[in-house]
Every structure is written in C-alpha cells, then in structure tokens.
Design a binder for these strands. Structure first.
Length: 504
RNA sequence: GAGCCUGUAGCUCAGCCGGUAGAGCAACUGACUUUUAAUCAGUAGGUCAUGGGUUCGAAUCCCAUCGGGCUCACCA
C-alpha cells in the first residue's frame, strides 16, 4: 500500500448495494458511526482473557458477587437484551455476558451501543461480577466496535439448518452450530496427533508433487490440467506413492510420511469428495505385518487424542478400536459369507461364473483377482463393522505390492475395514524392478482393453527401482473417513471445511 | 450417469385435493431497564428456485431447467 491510500476517504455505500433493506439499515448505522468519529473497522484490540478463561477463573464466584478485577474481552455479539443493556458476547472459547449501563459507560459509548447489531464484533473492558441470576458478566466501562456486521445472522434458536447453506457459507455454520465447530476442531486434533506420533517415532515428513506427468500410485481417474509455459498436460495426483518410494530409494530417510491431498475425478457421495486427505507412510526394512501393527497404533493414538478413548459410537453403532484387530484373508471371508472358496477355483472364467452366481455385476473381462474382489465387495465389505485387517489380496488388483511369500496368486497386502469402509491400505512394497515392469505391462494390457483405471507404466519409477529400493512397508490411511468415524459425522462434507459443490 | 425426495421473508418453518401468502426469530418505531430464546404494543419485509404449460384464476396441477439431499453405479 502506498502512502496515498491512507488519505482515501471511507467508501460510501451505493444505492445498488443497499437493495437488501436489512443490509441498508446496517449501512446507515455504519455511516452514522463514521459521522460520530467511530472507526467501524479498527486495526487491532488487546484482550486480557477469553470467555472460557473467565469461566474457569471465576467458577467459584458467588451469585451476586462483584469484583474489582478488570477483564478485557472481544468477540461477536450473539444476543442483545433489554435494549442493549445485556449483550451475549461469543469468542472462540465460549460466551460471556456484557452489562452496558448508563452509570458505567460514556455518552459516546452508549451512543455506539444503540447502533450495535447482532453479529457485530466488539471489545469490552470492565470489572467482572456474577449477576443475581448467576451469569458471569463484565460491567462494560469501555466498549469498542471492532467490526460492523452488515448481514443478519441466522435465527438464534434453530440456527442454520439448511445443509446446502451450511456447506456454501461454512462461516455461518461455524458461527451458529457448536457441533460443526467441534467437528473441524477435532479433525485438526486428529491430524496434529497423527503428525506428532509419527515425528516422535522418527518418521520424516516430506512433500511430493501435486502435479504429475503420469498419474500413478492408485487405480483412479485423474483431473487433467495444463501448464502453459511447458505447453503440456499435467494431472492432479491421485496418490503420492511413487514419489515417496523414490525418496526411500534416495535414502532421504528410512521412515517417511506425507499428510496431504489427493484428487480423484470420480463420483461424489457422502463418503467421496473429489479432493481428500490421506496419510501415506513408508518404512524401509519393514513389511506389511509391521504396517498392521502401526495402523492399530496410529488409529488408536489419534482416537484417544480426539475422543479420549478407544470406543467410539458411529451412527448409533459402537465401535471398539482396542488392538489387536482380527486379521482375515479375503478368500476366507468370502468363503465364510458365501460358501464359495475362490482359492479352489482354477481359472478366471470359473471365478467369474462364481462371482456372477453371487450376484456381482460381471462384464466378462475380469481376471481371477477382480472376480474375487467383486465377491468380497458385494458380500463381505459391509459386514466388517469392527476393525478388521483383510489380507490375502489378489495379485491381479495389486500391481505395486510384493508377491505373497506362499501363494503366487496373492500379494502381501491388507486393507483395514471399519464400519464397512476401507480405512487403511498397505503392503510389502514391490521392489523387484523386473517384476514391477511386468506388472505395469499387464496393467497396460488391461488399459488397452478399456480399463480406464489400470495404472500407466511409469518408466521413471521403474528406473528408480533399478537402483534399488530396500524391502519396504507402505501404508495409506484415509483421514477424512477416519475423522468421520471419530466425530460421528454422517457425510464426508461435514469433516471437510469447504467440500466440493456446484456453484449456485 | 440413473431413481426417489427437496427449494415459500435474512433464518427456522406453516400453507400444497387451485381462489391473489402466514407464524416465530431477526429488523424498524416506541415502552420497559438486572435480562437469559427478555417482555409488551405497533410497523415493515415475498418475481413462493427459474422458464414454459393447463386454467377464468397456479406457491399449490403438468413439463423442462438449475441448486441441494439420499440411494445406486464408480471409488477411498
């Protein structure tokens, strides 16, 4: 800003801006305040306390007791009673009542009080007392307008209930709904606890590209964008996996992780947002069994940090996160649920027939592993309410995982299910560059046959593997869904501050 | 992408077998001045999502479009 800007007069509202009568009234008040020499948007304000500090400090203050202690607070006006004599002031910590009486306030301050609206931000200084009705109160000796609000807040009793408005104007949702505030605060605690846990165990936090030239590391359709100077298309990453393993090849750290966004160009649902946050973690010289233990430790740790315990209630269902969690193979779970033993089915065709008989939608191109997965998804997944590690994943659907040490049809991979949702996905990372190339080539064949989500061959990644990736365990945890479980949120949109919506 | 539900005042909601729109809160004017969803009296506020159609007449019935929700498909 140049020096010239300082002398610019305050902008005056125009007629077109004033068409909303409720807003017009507040604009008029704004002008009146300026006319009185009050700056409706001053630069800063020094507080001595937050509301919750005072609640704690004066918890024992007797009803009707007055103190000489002076406190200075700031916040948003949420209610005005008795023509401004009583004001409910809310800050991020809670609520404090303000008493603004002609005996304590200057004429100038009283004139300001008359022009206050619900929603305005003010600062107040004065002695603390507890009213005869038991409400902790500051007798305003001085009152400062900190920001004039030009829009009415939603109704005080029912709040903002409209789901669409809650997501579109999240700030209103946060002002009005304590539950929304608590959900997003708890999300922050989950991420902070996860990060602290990993850092304390010597995992190195890294950042890898969001813009990929080849969208790899998962089976998903990517967003495409374009870089002008390089004149080339780039993809928003669908997973950080291949870059993180390059860092392990480089020996940056034997233990590293990234907590960050992934983007998938797929349908939206109460459990799918186009951008979502995941933890991905790699640990050299570990394998997938180590990742199972680690999953239990991480989830248990963040659950305790966020909720205070290992038992959570989601949609009325009690979920017990106490480790260890059962470890079951995909084939045995399918056998249990359907009586069909996929491990005893020789070829892809018989597996497809079996899956079709179980009611799965089968196109005819599925291989053995895809047929087993379809049967698992249709008949088992939903039932895995309590935490369960599902092992014995088919090699066909796991092009980045090391072959199972006992059964070549399988890989050393597991997914952890809670409430029927995949919460974690992990494997012993495939580090044989020749096998990796063969897996990619098989994916390319599937891709050519029309499988849009088959993973493209990443030559640069295979090159990195040829220099030598140590044996390595890798783990991914979907943070949004984990937070849904820990906050009892019915929709992923509740745990994302600004979920993807069509513009209105 | 498909099916079902949904959109009325700034907010929360009535009204919907057609007859020209209503409450509470918020706002405004006044009263009251130790209140707690303050209270009392009064006032103002609406392209009933949008566009068509049926009808003498549509918030209401029909069609289309746009937003949102849920279920399914895809996926984490």
């Amino acid at each position: 800003m140049s020096a010239d800007d300082i002398s610019h007069p305050a902008p005056t509202p125009t007629a077109s801006e004033g068409e909303d009568p409720l807003r017009r009234v507040r604009l008029d008040k704004l002008e009146t305040l300026r006319g009185m020499g009050v700056d409706p948007y001053p630069v800063s304000f020094s507080r001595s306390h937050q509301a919750a500090d005072l609640d704690r400090y004066y918890a024992e203050l007797a009803v009707g007791a007055e103190t000489e202690d002076r406190a200075c607070v700031a916040g948003r006006i949420r209610a005005i009673r008795n023509s401004g004599m009583f004001i409910d002031l809310h800050d991020a910590s809670g609520k404090i009542q303000i008493f603004s009486h002609k005996d304590f306030l200057s004429a100038e301050n009283l004139a300001v009080v008359r022009l206050l609206d619900i929603g305005d931000l003010i600062g107040v200084e004065g002695p603390v007392r507890r009213t005869p009705r038991g409400e902790l109160t500051i007798n305003a000796a001085a009152l400062t307008l900190l920001a004039k609000s030009l829009r009415p807040l939603p109704e005080k009793y029912h709040g903002l209930a409209d789901i669409e408005l809650r997501y579109r104007q999240r700030y209103l949702d946060l002002i009005m709904n304590p539950h929304s505030r608590e959900t997003l605060r708890r999300r922050s605690r989950v991420v902070a606890a996860m990060r602290a846990y990993l850092l304390s165990r010597d995992y190195l936090e890294v950042e890898t590209p969001m813009l990929h030239t080849i969208p790899g590391g998962a089976a998903a359709r990517p967003f495409v964008t374009h870089h002008n100077a390089l004149d080339m298309d780039l993809y928003l990453r669908i997973a950080p996996e291949l870059h993180l393993k390059r860092l392990v090849v480089g020996g940056l750290s034997d233990k590293l992780f990234e907590i960050n966004r992934c983007f998938r160009n797929e349908g939206l649902s109460p459990r799918h947002n186009p951008e979502f946050t995941s933890l991905e973690l790699y640990e050299a010289y570990a394998d997938y069994t180590g990742m199972m233990n680690l999953t239990e430790e991480i989830v248990g740790h963040v659950a305790e940090a966020a909720t205070g315990g290992l038992r959570v209630s989601y949609g009325g269902t009690e979920i017990d996160l106490t480790p260890p969690w059962p470890r079951r193979t995909m084939a045995e779970l399918v056998l249990e649920a359907t009586g069909v033993d996929f491990l005893a089915l020789a070829g892809a065709a018989t597996a497809r027939d079996a899956a079709r008989h179980l009611g799965c939608a089968i196109s005819g191109n599925e291989n053995w592993g895809q047929a087993l997965e379809a049967a698992f998804a249709a008949r088992v997944e939903d039932r895995l309410i309590q935490p369960t590690h599902v092992t014995g994943f088919p090699r066909d659907i796991s092009p980045l995982a090391k072959a199972d040490r006992d059964d070549p049809r399988l890989v050393e991979r597991f997914e952890t299910y809670i409430y029927g949702w995949e919460i974690a996905n992990a494997f012993s990372e495939l580090n044989d560059p020749l096998d990796q190339r063969a897996r990619f080539e098989a994916q390319m064949v599937a891709r050519a046959a029309g499988d849009e989500e088959a993973q493209p061959l990443d030559e640069d990644y295979v090159l990195a593997l040829e220099y030598g990736l140590p044996p390595c365990g890798g783990l991914g945890i979907g943070i949004d869904r984990l937070v849904m479980l820990l906050t009892d949120s019915p929709s992923i949109r509740d745990v994302i501050a600004f979920p993807t919506l069509r513009p209105r």
